[in-house]
């Protein structure tokens, strides 16, 4: 593949991939590792890749899941760390505090979703990937992705309603 193509692919996707990897690993350095490995795999791959972006996402996902498995951590996306980290850096006015409180609840609700559902939600809502791409990344069928997203949103809504009843 031509040199420029790789450059553009890196440029277009690195931010999203880093975010995605970080979601699993919660560590900047590890996330960079994951993305770097994915890109290296990509340049070494000698067959034609039809959807490089989805391919890269999948490579990152596989890397992250493998890593988590090796570390014997529970292989799912956790928002727990985010909550702790974002606590520190902003002294916000009251309204924002309420918003933050709100955000915490949503975070917790997302956290309580099934791992696969959580992944679909992240890929769709955070990364805006299409069902087709999500299907490629997660090795599922397109209709299954739609179903999972629907289920996840339903669950999220009922959990949120329950949380906000108080």
């Amino acid at each position: 593949m031509p040199q420029e193509a790789v450059e553009t692919i890196i440029h277009d996707n690195e931010a999203a991939l880093l975010r995605y990897a970080w979601r699993y690993l919660h560590d900047d350095a590890s996330a960079q590792d994951a993305v770097q490995v994915a890109f290296i795999k990509y340049v070494h791959h000698d067959k034609v890749i039809f959807n490089p972006r989805a391919w890269l996402f999948r490579a990152v996902r596989n890397y992250c899941l493998n890593l988590l498995k090796q570390q014997q951590r529970r292989p799912e996306i956790s928002l727990e760390h985010t909550a702790e980290q974002s606590k520190g850096h902003s002294d916000a006015p009251d309204t924002e505090l309420i918003n933050r409180e709100d955000g915490q609840i949503i975070r917790r609700c997302i956290d309580n979703l099934k791992p696969k559902h959580k992944e679909v939600v992240v890929l769709k809502l955070e990364h805006g990937r299409s069902y087709r791409e999500i299907a490629m990344i997660m090795q599922a069928t397109v209709s299954n992705v739609g179903f999972m997203l629907h289920e996840a949103m339903k669950q999220l809504r009922s959990d949120l309603a329950e949380e906000l009843v108080r």
Binding site: L18, D28, A31, R107, V122, L125
Partner: peptide, 19 residues
């Protein structure tokens, strides 16, 4: 719900570029 969740997810900041 959709927009709020999206926002919450977007809030998490991380590095944007590979070193």
């Amino acid at each position: 719900l959709w927009s709020r969740t999206g926002e919450v997810l977007a809030e998490d900041s991380t590095i944007e570029q590979l070193s």
